[in-house]
């Protein structure tokens, strides 16, 4: 599975599971970029076969409803574009 890496300030491991067509996912990615933190993201809808199954399993682990965006910050997960929560979690 190839995550796209965005370079920035180190705030621990930040992973964004997103859909390429989803506007809330786009807003989440833009917020992380604006905050200037280092993070990895992946568009699950563009994955195929084993990569897709694996990514879905990972999302399910943090968010049983497998909805997007699912943002994982350390061991905390934030489902949906929740700006206030995201800002607080990143600090």
């Amino acid at each position: 599975m190839n995550f796209e890496h965005v370079a920035g300030k180190e705030r621990g491991k930040i992973t964004l599971y997103a859909l390429s067509t989803c506007i809330w996912c786009k807003r989440t990615r833009e917020l992380l970029t604006a905050l200037g933190v280092s993070f990895d993201y992946i568009y699950v809808d563009l994955l195929k076969g084993e990569d897709r199954t694996k990514a879905i399993e990972q999302v399910k682990h943090y968010n049983p409803s497998t909805s997007f965006p699912t943002l994982v910050i350390g061991d905390k997960s934030i489902v949906g574009f929740r700006e206030k929560e995201i800002r607080e979690a990143i600090g």
Binding site: L19, T21, I23, W24, C25, V44, I56
Partner: peptide
């Protein structure tokens, strides 16, 4: 175009 129907853009089809 991808699936043949207008699936919700905010959900995984």
């Amino acid at each position: 175009r991808r699936y043949g129907y207008r699936a919700c853009p905010c959900r995984l089809a």
